[in-house]
Computed example of a mutant assay.
Amino acid sequence: MTAPSAPWTVPVLSYPWPEAVSPLEHDEALRREELSWLAEFYAELPAADRERYGRQGLSLGAAAMFPYVGDLARMRPIARYMLWLAIWDDHHESGTAAELTAVCDRAVEIMRGAEPAADEAGPLRLLAVLRRELGDLPGFWTDRWIASFRACATHGLLAEAPFRQGLRRMPALAGLELIREYSIGLYPFFHMTDAARGRVLPDDLYHHPAVQRSLALLCRICTLQNDLYSLRKELDAPTSDLFNAVLLLQRERGGSLTEAITEVVAHHDRYVRELDSLLRHLSDLDPRLAAARPYVEQTTLIITGIDRWYRSPGTGRYRPDGFAQEVPRGAALPG
């Protein structure tokens, strides 16, 4: 897509929650490890894509999202999972339902503790390593992690497929947001909060409607945040992402890019206000939710941390030399 001639800018987003800076956000040892993971587990990717992912600094993004984890050993599986999820999303959004289902099923087996064969795809071996590093978490936690992963694959990537393939007309913003709530991939990543905290939120609190609404709002905030920060990349790319909310609104309304940006920011801010209100009144809804408040507060750090990471000059996630190229249909996909 050709960039518009009229000047435009994405405003700095703001959040009402405390912001913390991780001691690992600029850790060179963690960066070196990430580059070694790319070399060891993603050898089947083109060298140019491995270099691009290396410039993104995904491990430092994970550190920014979990600023209360100052120990490299505890951060390592979270950073590995950040890398795994990012590449999973980039390389499976154009896959067929059969391809995605098969690789999803095998990933789930490994998440449950199965060991990959020595000749299996590198990403599956990386998933097995991080699963072992997460330690002995209760079975109900694993069930939640897997259910979230499957939901993102089914209601996210698989739901996007017919639109990306031109088989259906693009949905309005409300429909797009419902799909993107899952395809952004945050639901399974939220479970790293339990591993980072060293304690697991009980099942009854995790499944409480107020906690589930909080997590849904966080996903929606993150998708709009992502669409704003990736806008320059989309405009500079030969073909833009159909699922970018700014570009969808501009096409729907026929207005300027600045008008679409303003509307998306306002939408983002409404979700932020709802989440902040919900967080402040959790105990009013149910006294038991006082015990869930620290969990939800720590998930808000994922949003403020990734916002800081997007704005950091240290990440190339959405710079032309950082984002991975689109995978052609029919190309071999990493596990």
Rank of each mutant, 00 (worst) to 15 (best):
A97Q: 12
A260H: 11
L249P: 09
A260M: 09
E33D: 13
G61Y: 06
L205E: 09
L30D: 05
G113N: 10
A29H: 12
V12D: 05
L100N: 13
T262E: 14
H207I: 02
P23I: 08
P162C: 01
R50Q: 13
A48I: 02
S183P: 12
L100R: 14
S148Y: 05
L100A: 12
R106W: 04
W37S: 00
E33Q: 10
R308W: 01
R150T: 00
W141V: 06
T304F: 01
D89T: 04
D204M: 05
P294K: 13
R280S: 14
D276G: 15
H207K: 07
C222P: 03
L247G: 06
F243L: 13
T96W: 15
G185L: 08
F323K: 10
I302T: 02
E274K: 13
R197L: 03
L201R: 03
V69I: 01
F66S: 04
P171E: 06
D105S: 10
A210F: 10
N244M: 09
Y68V: 00
E259A: 10
P209R: 14
R131I: 00
E120V: 11
L186C: 11
I179W: 07
P23V: 08
G305S: 05
G175N: 15
R273Q: 08
S94T: 13
H155N: 13
A107M: 05
R144S: 07
L58S: 05
P46L: 14
K233Y: 02
